[in-house]
Design a binder for these strands. Sequence first.
DNA 1: ATTATATGGGCTATTTATAATCCAAATCGG
DNA 2: CCGATTTGGATTATAAATAGCCCATATAAT
Lengths: 111, 111
Amino acid sequence: MTKLETRAYSSYSRDALKLLAQMIRRARIERKLTTQELADRAGISRGLIQRIERGDPGCAIGAVFETAAIVGVRLFDADQPTMAAHLSANNATLALLPKSVRPSGKVKDDF
Amino acid sequence: MTKLETRAYSSYSRDALKLLAQMIRRARIERKLTTQELADRAGISRGLIQRIERGDPGCAIGAVFETAAIVGVRLFDADQPTMAAHLSANNATLALLPKSVRPSGKVKDDF
DNA sequence: ATTATATGGGCTATTTATAATCCAAATCGG
DNA sequence: CCGATTTGGATTATAAATAGCCCATATAAT
């Protein structure tokens, strides 16, 4: 039985997922890595590599990101120092933001 | 009991995960959305939103990407048409690549 | 063509994530 | 300060992912 769709995904997140999956697969092949070799390096099973390269939404994001990192796919188009910079910058901004949110009035969206 | 570390993650993928988590949390607060409201919109539980904003590697990537999309966090710094373009470009490239990989000789890496 | 092997897919057992609670503490608006 | 509510964290039952097999097919190198 093919599992029939449990959740709904926006086309945006579905495309992002597919794109990441394709980039990983392409990078793996270009680096001449076997699915098994990649699985071993990532510490996961070959079957999971297959699901990752298929863009399965149910895969653990940690496994996907780790796999991407191994084959050299850059998330956020950024290297580590750049990401670290963004992290601390975001931390600073987050510190200034309210710690809990009150939906003022009835409006939930701004546009 | 705090679950003791099962897997190892590279610092790169851990940072990428944290960064995405922070961007989501920041975007949610800036949009004045309650964790419950965001959970409802994403079709997931509030507890999962908390783990997503904590950068938990075990979260399903579909749930994370969907949540990001809802609060307006752009994956790959790209809008939908841009991603679609990358998708088809990648498809074309993949078609030219070998369909299966043979580790030539003993070398697994190229550098 | 032949041979070795990579890939795709299915299957089951086990681990893990997720939902749905509930509670205590923190936070914000009045 | 007070009251309402958001948030964080724990717990438990359920659902789902993952690992580890297996087999058939496709692919690539010789």
